[in-house]
């Protein structure tokens, strides 16, 4: 059943403040209670129609603790992450709003952080962002005024000191749980744990990693992380996702920077009769192995164009161990919510 701390009087309102928590969102509570968290990512629609968001998340309702709203991922233009987050909050979901440094300078970003928090965003993921050449507008100006680490520091300063980067005072600081990404699978490998330490020192409270298809490499990274004691200073959610086919895996490996897929995974897909089902099985197995890895606090699912498989993957992996994340029918006041939402 749902933990009583995770239900408020109305689903879209911030939850009752808890001691030792920086935010009033569900994700921080789940992680701080030591439960294995599951988050999932949706790619915002190329549309101004809010129904498309509901359509995308419905298949995994009740299977994830928070939903990441990506910010122009792959440097492609989509609905803004803050707008998607606000729409998710209106429905009662808990979004992780991604903020990338590619498209906004420090003035715009700080304004967006205040605006997002005002709309009820409790979790922000700080990213550097993909280069503009990866997207549909390669001729655009890359901004990168901040980077992921200075963005983390900026938001922490806003929240904890109540100040903008300029030093000017903020009257109502943003109460947000702040996260960052890490890629344990990209060179320079020796530097990655140091970089994680840097992100934690800059303010990262949770980490969502790049897709993990290489469990031994993840294990080596986590061993170093534990040596440095980093897993005790932040919650690490390992990134996972199903590969649709061997061909798709090869394409991703060649064309999506930062995704490392070992030959063994591709060979296993090639040898399978039903590659899609095999891709899902590989994902489930990886999740189960990560569940047992010391220092891993949860998984982050990225099932691009396979959102419908997220519920099955979480179910088959059994990582929730009977726990039910929030869903709309678990709120007693839902009838009233729908009436008010429609008004």
């Amino acid at each position: 059943m749902l933990h009583p701390d995770d239900i408020g009087p109305v689903p879209w309102a911030p939850l009752k403040p808890l001691p030792g928590h920086v935010s009033r969102g569900r994700l921080e509570r789940v992680l701080r209670r030591g439960e294995f968290a599951v988050t999932a990512e949706i790619n915002p629609p190329d549309s101004a129609d809010p129904d498309e968001i509901e359509h995308r998340i419905k298949p995994f309702e009740g299977w994830v603790d928070a939903i990441n709203a990506t910010d122009g991922s792959g440097a492609h233009c989509h609905m803004s992450s803050i707008a998607v987050s606000a729409l998710l909050i209106r429905m009662g979901y808990s979004p992780v709003t991604q903020i990338s440094c590619r498209d906004h300078n420090r003035i715009a970003i700080q304004g967006n952080v205040l605006g997002a928090a005002a709309l009820g965003v409790a979790n922000i993921l700080c990213l550097t962002g993909d280069g503009v050449q990866a997207g549909d507008h390669p001729e655009a100006k890359p901004v990168f005024d901040l980077d992921s680490i200075s963005l983390l520091q900026t938001i922490r300063t806003m929240r904890d000191e109540g100040k903008f980067l300029s030093g000017r005072r903020i009257t109502g600081p943003p109460q947000v749980f702040v996260g960052a990404a890490e890629n344990p699978f990209a060179p320079p490998h020796d530097f990655r744990p140091i970089r994680l330490a840097k992100k934690i020192a800059a303010g990262a409270q949770f980490i969502q990693t790049q897709y993990c298809y290489d469990v031994p490499m993840m294990a080596r990274f986590m061993a170093r992380v534990r040596d440095l004691g980093l897993h005790e200073r932040c919650f690490i959610l390992a990134g996972c996702g199903p590969l649709a086919s061997a061909k798709a895996a090869k394409w991703i490996r060649a064309n999506v920077p930062g995704v490392h897929i070992p030959d063994g995974v591709i060979a296993r897909l090639e040898g399978a009769k039903n590659q899609r089902a095999e891709g899902k099985r590989i994902c489930v197995e990886i999740i189960q192995q990560l569940r047992e890895m010391p220092g891993i606090a949860g998984v982050h699912l990225m099932a691009y164009k396979q959102e419908e498989s997220i519920a099955e993957i979480v179910h088959e992996s059994g990582v929730l161990r009977g726990r039910t994340p929030w869903r709309r029918d678990l709120v007693a006041h839902m009838q009233a919510v729908e009436t008010q939402g429609a008004a």
Binding site: C101, R102, T128, G129, D130, G131, Q133, A134, P142, F144, D147, S148, I149, S150, A181, E182, N183, A186, P187, P188, F191, I194, R195, K198, Q210, P257, G258, H260
Partner: peptide, 21 residues
């Protein structure tokens, strides 16, 4: 760095150690 990063590499570094951009 095409992203002007001053705090370390981004997550897009290729397996051969080359730039994503």
């Amino acid at each position: 760095c095409p992203k002007g990063l001053r705090n370390g590499p981004c997550g897009g570094v290729r397996d051969n150690g080359h730039c994503e951009v």
